[in-house]
Simulated assay, not measured.
Amino acid sequence: MNNLEKRIRVVVADDHPVMRDGLRAAIESAGDMDVVGEAGDGAEALARFRELDPDVTLLDLQMPNVDGLDAIAAICGENASARIVVLTTYPGDARAKRALALGATAYLLKSATREEILDAIRRAAAGRRAMTAEVASDVALHACSEMLTPRELAVLRLVATGHSNKEIAEQLNVSDDTIKARLQNAMGKLGASDRTHAVTLAVRRGFLDAP
């Protein structure tokens, strides 16, 4: 196999052109990989994947139109052997677990060093998983934590947008007591002292997007 065949072909998906430029420069300076395509949102990432069949897709989570998690699900739904490295600003064990469950190979924060990013791309191309120390520590810390249910998440999303328990009960067509019970359950799972604290912890861990 010659050197050209050994090079890792990468698609970079991020909605910030400056970030894409920086990643392209870092990747192409590595000597063993090339950026073969770019995307500004999840829909474009899926299109570039179909078009270019890269060895690795380097993907942000927070993108317009189709976000990163939906893009991971779509790409891996079409090709279970796809290698996806998530590079995001947002930590959180729940978000990382969801990305990995959907098929991502690696999960890194944008605070990662150039070498950490390049190493994750190489590991992903070889079929090995990677995670930054901060994310790995967060996942380990909450490994035994109960996940929030869809109903508990629905309540917290409405709390996050400023709705009272009564308003939430009306929107979800359930009783006030049901909302109180779901909120108490969510607070218990998160270790929260009150409803505002519960939203803060849910956002931090990646259960909810920041309101």
Rank of each mutant, 00 (worst) to 15 (best):
45 A>M: 08
118 L>A: 05
80 A>I: 09
108 L>D: 02
52 L>S: 09
102 L>N: 06
97 K>Y: 11
57 T>N: 04
57 T>S: 10
93 D>H: 15
138 D>I: 06
133 A>E: 15
41 D>M: 01
55 D>C: 04
70 D>E: 14
109 L>G: 03
31 G>T: 06
30 A>E: 11
90 Y>Q: 09
83 R>I: 06
137 S>P: 00
89 T>L: 12
139 V>P: 06
141 L>W: 08
90 Y>F: 11
27 I>P: 00
48 R>I: 07
94 A>K: 05
108 L>G: 01
66 V>R: 04
136 A>R: 12
95 R>S: 10
67 D>M: 10
118 L>W: 08
142 H>A: 08
35 V>Y: 13
76 C>Y: 12
141 L>G: 01
73 A>P: 06
73 A>F: 10
115 E>C: 07
28 E>Q: 14
94 A>H: 05
108 L>F: 05
115 E>L: 14
117 I>R: 09
59 L>H: 09
116 E>C: 02
35 V>E: 13
79 N>D: 14
53 D>Y: 01
115 E>A: 14
93 D>G: 12
73 A>Y: 09
127 G>E: 10
123 R>C: 11
43 A>L: 14
80 A>F: 03
64 P>F: 01
71 A>T: 01
107 Y>G: 07
135 V>D: 03
95 R>G: 04
44 E>Y: 05
121 I>A: 04
36 V>F: 05
63 M>L: 00
123 R>V: 10
97 K>T: 13
92 G>V: 06
125 A>L: 08
121 I>Q: 04
139 V>E: 10
26 A>M: 15
110 K>T: 04
42 G>K: 02
68 G>S: 06
28 E>T: 14
66 V>Y: 00
60 D>E: 07
34 D>H: 13
120 A>S: 09
128 R>E: 15
28 E>Y: 11
63 M>F: 00
128 R>K: 15
135 V>T: 08
122 R>Q: 08
26 A>W: 11
126 A>H: 15
124 A>R: 02
29 S>P: 04
